[in-house]
């Protein structure tokens, strides 16, 4: 189980000032937990690409943002991530809901370039976004790890450390709905 309250505590521990994003099922509880938080301001966007540019501006202004969006929106955001975060070397932790992960795992599929065939990408029993997600992260040079339960929360610290040390975006993929 991935507990929203525990995640918020970790974000406080990392001195996060803003969470910029757009909610989905996986992040709904987290957004709800942040709605009245006194230390972290939620910035709601209309399209996920906005989130990366807003986060870049926040960082330049001295804040410490996190981006929280779903994998579909992440794929839509390619140029914003490239131009506003990677190009500027913004240290940025991104919490990304992994849509379709359960179906992928149940079918025993491990995302890879070889799986990205027209036949697989149109399979009705799989979410093509799930098949594309990890290969896309790798292609865009974004290091990532999975976040499936409270036991994984130490990975959050590692992600912040790596983002800071390497001046890069680092992704944590949320594979279970937050509660």
């Amino acid at each position: 189980m991935l507990t929203a309250a525990r995640l918020v505590t970790e974000l406080h521990r990392q001195c996060v000032t803003h969470v910029v994003g757009l909610p989905d099922n996986a992040s709904a509880a987290l957004f709800a937990a942040l709605a009245h938080d006194e230390q972290i301001t939620v910035v709601a966007v209309t399209r996920e690409g906005e989130a990366f540019a807003i986060a870049a501006g926040l960082w330049m202004g001295g804040a410490k943002p996190v981006v929280l969006i779903q994998s579909t929106g992440f794929i839509e955001s390619g140029d914003a991530l490239r131009g506003c975060v990677t190009r500027l070397r913004i240290p940025l932790v991104c919490l990304l809901g992994y849509r379709g992960y359960r179906k992928l795992a149940a079918a025993g599929l491990r995302p890879s370039l070889e799986l990205l065939t027209p036949a697989n990408l149109s399979r009705p029993d799989q979410d093509s976004c799930a098949l594309l997600f990890e290969p896309t992260l790798r292609a865009w040079g974004i290091p990532y790890d999975l976040l499936s339960s409270d036991h994984d929360l130490s990975r959050l610290t590692a992600a912040f450390d790596r983002a800071q040390a390497e001046e890069t975006a680092v992704a944590l993929l949320i594979v279970e709905d937050t509660e």
């Binding site: 000032t17 803003h18 910029v20 301001t41 910035v43 690409g49 906005e50 540019a53 807003i54 986060a55 870049a56 501006g57 926040l58 960082w59 330049m60 202004g61 001295g62 804040a63 943002p65 914003a80 506003c84």
Partner: peptide
């Protein structure tokens, strides 16, 4: 968007 981030941080 970038300007909005700056405005919120400052």
């Amino acid at each position: 968007d970038l300007a909005l981030g700056l405005a919120l941080a400052q």
